[in-house]
Design a protein around this nucleic acid. Sequence first.
DNA 1: CTGCTACACTAACGAGCGTTAGTTAAAGTA
DNA 2: TACTTTAACTAACGCTCGTTAGTGTAGCAG
Lengths: 204, 204
Amino acid sequence: MPPVPEAAISATADEIREAALEQFARDGYSSTSMRDIASSVGIKAASLYNHFGSKEAILWDLTLTAFEELLRGRDLAIANLPVDPTPQDRLACLVTSHVAFHARNSNQALLVNSQLAALSKTHYRKAVAMRAQYEATMRQVIDEGVAKDVFTTIDARVTTFAILQMGMAVSAWFRPEGPLTVADLCTIYVDLAAKMLTPLPLKC
Amino acid sequence: MPPVPEAAISATADEIREAALEQFARDGYSSTSMRDIASSVGIKAASLYNHFGSKEAILWDLTLTAFEELLRGRDLAIANLPVDPTPQDRLACLVTSHVAFHARNSNQALLVNSQLAALSKTHYRKAVAMRAQYEATMRQVIDEGVAKDVFTTIDARVTTFAILQMGMAVSAWFRPEGPLTVADLCTIYVDLAAKMLTPLPLKC
DNA sequence: CTGCTACACTAACGAGCGTTAGTTAAAGTA
DNA sequence: TACTTTAACTAACGCTCGTTAGTGTAGCAG
């Protein structure tokens, strides 16, 4: 009896991850069967259990990796900020890493944004905590800008949701073979987010 | 043998609609069983077939109703516009009806925004067409504003998606018992959308 | 060469799924 | 009062699901 692997590391395990990620993102967790995943990899369903302890373990593995990459992208962007960054700098940096992630890793993004409910209660709680921590980063930047009087907003919480959500939606429609590059997309969303936090110009 | 009802009209049918809508929105179509729906109504699964021909028929019934209400809200808002409305008037009107629908009918909104894939191919195509028609209304208003030089945008298509999406997300988090009223919410999103389409003020 | 490990397989279990057939009881109509 | 309709029920069908048990085999370590 092979010990139930905590986090499988092998070429086959990676093929399983890849196939499961694509199908979970496209069809949803509960509409994807172990037999579906196995057949994408070219093995039988029972063989999946040589690599992952359960179907939910695959989802959790993928979810953890997705969150790690999301947070890593954010941290990398923050690390590349100029010294003494303005709130505008910080906002542009966060929106760029946010949108770039959702454009480049659409399957991971779809998993994180709409398949968390399929996790076990314990894993779900951890995932929600990670998401809350990620969202808090955006909120802090907005609050900082408001405190320094460079941002204006009716409601900082709602504006945070709005900025995060318009970026998340990118994963649902953006295709790299389309007319826009990821860089184009980031420029557009940074512009939108900046405007959302700037007072409307008075007629003068 | 009762004829398979096209669109059932009875108190029980309405209870089924209500229970199915809530569970489809909360747990997803494929995670909700006919036995789940039946038990919410207080009957057995087989009795559901006295009112609807299949599980998908329930989803399609709910989807059609949701789209009808969404479009009706939009048309009502448009009908109440002042004579010779400006693009800003039109934008505010559309954003208000959009956000109000997603705040007040969150279950219907979640259905329309994330359960279409569970429909049969024929019904799916019709639903996507209705959604496209709805989205086109917003796009037209933005294009009109750009043509009249009262709106500025890097990319009208992406901005349309962004405005629609930040409103759709409302259905996922807004609770009427929270600190904000629906009217508050509409005000906030109208403000955000207007700013998104207005040029950043130059320092002067 | 021997033995162990890794990883595939077949077969099957029990549970749950959407759905159908056939039955029964109550309500409405002639 | 008799007949029809409505809408509930029980029972079961065939299927798919996640998962487990047990088996075979190739490759590597001693």
